[in-house]
């Protein structure tokens, strides 16, 4: 299959990445050549194959649902591009 510009703009919207109109053509070309490469997989019949979901052959370890840290608000806020006392600040979302 081939990806057209509209499809790519839609995917970019889903990924929350704005795409420069001037770059859409070259992006379309690159992505199509990558998908052509990827689609070699269609040569293989995988009807009877179980998908590999974990390489470790066992389920993931879980831990007890207990608080083991905390009181690190300052550390968490330290790298925020915009903050107000105890909060992250984002552009207004409600009027």
């Amino acid at each position: 299959m081939s990806l057209d510009k509209e499809k790519i703009k839609h995917v970019a919207k889903l990924a929350r990445i704005s795409v420069d109109e001037a770059k859409v053509d070259s992006l379309t070309k690159d992505l199509n050549s990558i998908f052509k490469f990827i689609e070699q997989l269609n040569e293989l019949n995988t009807d009877k194959v179980e998908p590999l979901t974990s390489i470790l052959n066992r389920s993931l370890r879980s831990r007890k649902d207990e608080i083991n840290d905390g009181k690190i608000r300052e550390k968490i806020l330290k790298n925020s591009p915009k903050k107000n006392e105890e909060f992250f600040v984002v552009p207004k979302v409600v009027e």
Partner: peptide, 11 residues
């Protein structure tokens, strides 16, 4: 899903 199946074959 296709890729996960082929990954199984590679393993």
């Amino acid at each position: 899903l296709k890729a996960q199946k082929v990954r199984q074959l590679i393993k």
